[in-house]
Design a protein around this nucleic acid. Structure first.
Length: 808
DNA sequence: GGGTTAGGGT
């Protein structure tokens, strides 16, 4: 069971199996109520509501365990913020409704961040030594909310106003007019928090409180509080740019700065400008970066709610470690030998590193046991150390082991990637070992190249890691670097939107009528080159016209498909080429990561298993074979599926996700009326040619030709790349191929490749591959790249010029 | 000749 962020309350939550026992239910409600009142958020209730009446944007810094995610929406609802009735009675922007505004003492100061220098007081219990060692708390402009007692405020979950007609011309869809939307970066969080809040309010999930995530909508017409993923709200904005069905939008975990939240920021700013007093925005963030948000949103005010975090003592190494992996193993053994009860969480960078750390640690333990005898030392060997890996690609049954409590007399040492920073919370952890490194994705817009490299963490990330030791009691964090090293780390990790491919983002903005993408009000604008590159790509795909405007035929349809624009283009082409079914399966599979589980110590086994699926034509067809194999299993038999997957070293989570995407795409492409595209999904059977042609029609910007030295050259750019070692084509190296993506690690690798015919290119992408050039290139022994590169660059430059004219 | 951090989508 994954435990979500934000609070002991949610963590303790167990769903009651029966509610027919009224007495027990009432008892439970009392308990829940008592629990709620303990939460720091509860004490801040009245003040928060007051602030929100006076300001259109509230930036709420709620530390871990404050209860902000579960409580704030309920407060708003009980204060009728979640109903339509008060929206008309509110006053003009900037004019407080309440004459009590001054009485609270501070609102005047709060409004102007520059004046309100109130340093946030931080009590020791809240952050303890972490703060101390990290240096002084940042000087942020907030007001600290110290609970006025929340005694009188008990009408939570009271009867709600009938919704009537919604504001701003609602479309009458579910969770109708004036509801409260609360976004989360992760699906599990949206689900579990919604479930908890429904229970607190004593309603059925999907009734007054619900959630919506991709593939799942548990809301109804009576839903007033809707927890959802940020990506989903972004999708809704495509259809309803004013988000008219919501009176309040809450962006939770805003400090994580996902691509989705960052785009939402810009959109919401526009929504505020157009909806005025009719709309309220709350930005909830766990770290003290409120000033950024306050500066960005006009008229915003910040407030802090304390958390319930136990103190964590942070230790640094006196001098730099030259091998953090060795250091981590030593530190783990030392903590195990010297420290009291509690599990150890070690942050490493990736699967390989975790695998080898696991081996090294187990070897060291065996040696120690052997030299001392099984029970010789009271401090060492008296307790066993249970070494457990956790990372996203690990099969679920192995992942589950970290959530089980250590058996009596044992201690867990969990070797984790940054999955344990935010996505999952592991119970029992009291010691954190931070190697100070992380494997991170980056994007070089000029080269259109993604890279994956081990880099130092940011200070914020280091704090987040340390905090994992203080969830259940006082803890200790061991940073395997010096305090001086910490002080020179970047304060925060740059937002993702500044370091990723923007194809989808630019397409979405265009589809929402935001034509001047370069001028979009991003909180942190992505590199200009990244936007330009996306415009070029979208033009090449036919999604934008020469003026940079969305094309109705291709562009509009691509914007609605929930896949990368290049894959969307593959799907559209496939429906015309009679291989829609196969293409949907392939796109679903490539939209899923970690299909194959490839543990290093079982390489022979997984290679043998994979052979059954291998297509000599490439990775896409191999993935298609896997998907077909999976679909042949009885859908209702979980057992059969689990067994098949584990026998074949296939990740069942990935397969379930691929199946969901497949079904969603089939529904979408096939459905006859508007949101659907009403396209026929035919099958090409065993003939792979139509499918490979369809893939070419979308992936042509990634077409590459074999070079004499065994490497490949990307036709559109002239770049030299290598086939990724995981490709089934590695032994066969066809003369021409298209691939999904480039990734730079030790070298520049092309991942997921499929063989194509060079002569298809001018036919399927005439704007980019002039027939003449290809004809020359197709001749034997002709230096194809030298001829192609200038031609394609010229086209790209032309596209850029035209696309920009529309944009600027 | 050799390898993938984590999230997310009407």
């Amino acid at each position: 069971m994954l435990v979500i962020e934000d609070g002991p309350s949610a963590k303790k939550h167990r769903r009651s199996t029966k509610v027919d026992d009224d007495a027990a239910a009432a008892e439970r409600r009392k308990l829940i109520d008592a629990e709620r009142r303990q939460l720091p958020a509860w004490a801040a209730r009245d003040k928060l509501l007051q602030l929100l009446q006076e300001h259109r944007t509230l930036v709420l810094v709620g530390e871990t365990g404050s209860g902000k995610t579960t409580q704030i929406p309920q407060f708003l609802l009980s204060a009728r913020f979640g109903s339509r009735s008060r929206s008309r009675s509110s006053t003009a922007p900037g004019k407080p409704t309440s004459d009590k505004a001054g009485a609270a003492g501070t609102p005047g100061d709060i409004k102007s961040p520059q004046k309100a220098t109130g340093v946030v007081e931080r009590d020791g219990a809240s952050r303890g030594a972490v703060t101390q060692n990290d240096g002084p708390a940042q000087n942020v402009h907030h007001v600290s909310i110290n609970g006025s007692d929340g005694g009188g405020a008990a009408n939570h979950g009271g009867p709600q106003q009938p919704t009537g007609k919604s504001v701003g011309g609602s479309d009458g869809s579910r969770a109708g007019g004036g509801a409260i939307a609360v976004t989360q970066p992760r699906r599990v969080a949206a689900m579990t928090v919604a479930r908890r809040v429904a229970e607190e309010m004593g309603t059925k999930l999907g009734d007054k409180v619900g959630y919506a995530i991709r593939f799942e909508d548990v809301t109804s017409h009576s839903t007033r509080i809707k927890y959802m993923t940020d990506g989903l709200l972004l999708r809704e904005a495509l259809v309803d740019p004013l988000l008219s069905r919501y009176r309040i939008v809450i962006i939770d975990e805003a400090h994580e700065r996902t691509v989705h939240t960052d785009v939402l920021f810009g959109l919401l700013k526009g929504v505020q400008a157009r909806r005025g007093e009719d709309f309220r925005l709350i930005i909830m963030s766990a770290t003290l970066d409120a000033a950024r948000f306050v500066d960005y949103f006009p008229g915003a005010v910040a407030a802090l709610i304390r958390g319930r975090q136990f103190p964590v003592r942070v230790m640094y190494t006196p001098k730099p470690e030259d091998n953090y992996l060795d250091a981590a193993i030593n530190a783990t053994l030392q903590v195990h030998a010297d420290e009291g009860e509690g599990d150890i969480l070690v942050f490493l960078t990736g699967q390989d590193e975790i695998d080898s750390a696991e081996r090294l640690l187990k070897d060291r333990l065996a040696t120690l046991q052997g030299s001392r005898g099984p029970t010789s030392s009271p401090s060492f060997g008296s307790r066993e150390l249970l070494v457990l890996p956790i990372y996203a690609a690990l099969p679920p049954e192995q992942q589950m082991k970290v959530f089980e409590p250590a058996p009596e007399g044992q201690r867990k040492a969990i070797l984790a990637t940054n999955i344990a920073e935010t996505s999952i919370t592991i119970p029992g952890v009291r010691y954190v070992i931070d190697t100070g490194h992380v494997k991170a994705r980056d994007y070089n817009a000029k080269l259109g190249l993604e890279s994956l490299a081990v880099v130092p963490v940011s200070q914020a990330q280091a704090r987040q890691r340390s905090g994992r030791a203080g969830r259940e009691g006082p803890g200790k964090a061991f940073r395997l670097y010096t305090e001086a090293d910490f002080s020179v780390l970047e304060p925060t990790t740059p937002p993702e939107i500044t370091r990723c491919n923007l194809g989808s983002v630019v397409l979405q903005l265009k589809a929402m009528g935001i034509n001047d993408v370069l001028g979009f009000d991003f909180m942190d604008p992505p590199p200009r080159a990244a936007i330009l590159r996306s415009l070029e790509l979208l033009y090449a795909l036919g999604a934008l016209d020469a003026a940079g405007c969305l094309t109705e035929g291709v562009g509009r349809r691509l914007s609605r498909l929930p896949v990368d624009p290049m894959f969307g283009r593959v799907l559209l082409a496939a429906t015309e080429m009679g291989c829609g079914q196969e293409a949907v399966a392939v796109v679903a599979m490539v939209s899923t990561e970690n299909v194959f589980h490839t543990p290093r110590q079982k390489e022979r086994e997984w290679r043998a298993a994979r052979l059954k699926f291998v297509s000599r034509e490439g990775d896409h067809l191999t993935l298609l074979n896997v998907f077909r194999g999976f679909l042949e299993l009885p859908k209702e038999s979980n057992k059969a599926r689990t067994t098949w997957c584990s026998e074949n070293f296939i990740n069942i989570r990935a397969m379930r996700k691929a199946e969901d995407i497949y079904e969603q795409l089939v529904r979408f492409l096939g459905h006859p009326s508007p949101p659907g595209l009403g396209l026929q999904l035919a099958t090409c059977g065993e003939d792979s040619t139509p499918l490979r042609r369809a893939l070419t029609a979308g992936l042509f910007p990634h077409a590459a030709k074999l070079q004499p030295d065994g490497s490949y050259r990307v036709l559109a750019t002239g770049r030299q790349v290598f086939l990724h070692p995981s490709s089934v084509l590695l032994d066969r190296k066809p003369a021409c191929l298209v691939f999904n993506e480039l990734m730079h690690t030790t070298r520049t690798y092309a991942r997921d490749a499929v063989e194509i015919e060079a002569r298809w290119l001018p036919e399927l992408a005439p704007a980019v591959f002039a027939a003449k050039t290809i004809a020359a290139a197709a001749g034997p022994g002709v230096g194809i790249n030298e001829r192609l590169a200038p031609a394609t660059t010229g086209v790209a430059a032309g596209a850029r010029g035209r696309a920009l004219r529309g944009a600027e």
